[in-house]
Design a protein around this nucleic acid. Sequence first.
DNA 1: TCGCTTTTAATGTATATACATAAAATGAAG
DNA 2: CTTCATTTTATGTATATACATTAAAAGCGA
Lengths: 239, 239
Amino acid sequence: MKIALHERIRQDFEGRILSGELAPGDRLPIEQDIMADYGCARMTVNKALSALLAAGLIERRKKAGTFVARPKVHSMILDVPDIAAQVRERGQDYGFRALAHAVRQPLAGMEEERLLAGEGALMQVDGLHLANGVPLCVEYRLVSVAAVPDIVEADLHNMAPGTWLLQHVPWTEAETRISAVPAGEGEALHLQLPVGTACLSVERWTWRGAERITYVRQIFPGDAYDMLARFGPSTAAVR
Amino acid sequence: MKIALHERIRQDFEGRILSGELAPGDRLPIEQDIMADYGCARMTVNKALSALLAAGLIERRKKAGTFVARPKVHSMILDVPDIAAQVRERGQDYGFRALAHAVRQPLAGMEEERLLAGEGALMQVDGLHLANGVPLCVEYRLVSVAAVPDIVEADLHNMAPGTWLLQHVPWTEAETRISAVPAGEGEALHLQLPVGTACLSVERWTWRGAERITYVRQIFPGDAYDMLARFGPSTAAVR
DNA sequence: TCGCTTTTAATGTATATACATAAAATGAAG
DNA sequence: CTTCATTTTATGTATATACATTAAAAGCGA
């Protein structure tokens, strides 16, 4: 008996819901009954059900009771680890080669760049992620110098700016766009692919609160990289 | 004062962490001190901190204390709504046109198909998702008849099998793989694209408990469809 | 200084209790 | 039969308390 009682209760109901024994719309026993079943206090039951509520598995209405939720939008959790960490996890040797590295003003007319820069300048870092010396991904990145002044001092020739940022400007929020694009001349050259090869494009805007931190565009050969995601009602428990 | 005290405490610390005031690795006050600050019981503080723990914002170690978590893997929530719902949300007219529709045995040698079928047969449904009559996506789907017997009776000529499944087989878990592929001859024909055009491929295996439900492969023109995802530490609150 | 044991300070779990809140169910008045 | 007030019931929040668990820190002997 290493697992806590409230956790066991939670798992029991999660299992019954996932297995379909308890279908959406079905009513769960009231806290008093569950508490009698397990021979515990109501607070313990409440803790278990609160976790299921937070995970979106159930809905609760006062007086009416507790019901299995009807899944509407299946949101899934996409793990987006640092590329360096990901490569090393596969047992490969990771490397980063900078292609361009400059501090500049936002280009006139580029509203996105101006918003990112704020009152300050932009740092542009383009580079290649390498796995065992083989190019895995081309990356184009812009960082707001106003938001992250330390970036100009950082040595980014061998370290990906994303890795550096992750360690220095954590807990940001982000928006990611994934699409498929044909390899342009630059990508074709760096990734050693024919022009027009289907590639995966991952664009990400990152900010902290209202302040914009960075924009990055990564191009992967389509067959060399998959985004893998798992989802389910137990998303909260994944971590 | 409509919001609960434990919720207010949770939000306060979430805000301090997001703003950077509390950086990763920083130590939070011990429960006793927080409890004194807010003039409440320890259980109330504990509930607030438990929520932050579940959200991955903090780490807690006995005797040592509570610390702001160092974000390693940024997990982000990818909303994967039903394509039909998504199209209608954009104010467009949704349609589905079946291209193939058959019940068959798993192909010999295809281990994946045999696993999906289990003891029974497979239902294969290929079709086109249309937005305002324009092909948006080609879909190849296999459904386990053993797991979802009702599927053979369903009228899937105008309704996407995914939509039908979502309504009849809820609370499933899934794994999704996103990659970029060149359009094959079939996709080129149906999506009215040149062969080789960069397309987004979304593959998904779905199961309930140990039972496999369905496998689907969707091919989108790369420039016509983006997967959009937002993430941040407050993922748990998104629901 | 090293390695071992003991102490101690923090979180983790659970209980019993109390009152608040919201909404379904009931019942009374018209 | 309808409408509105009342009661009832299930969840929501909060408290005070107790003991378990764990790992850091302190103490101590060789």
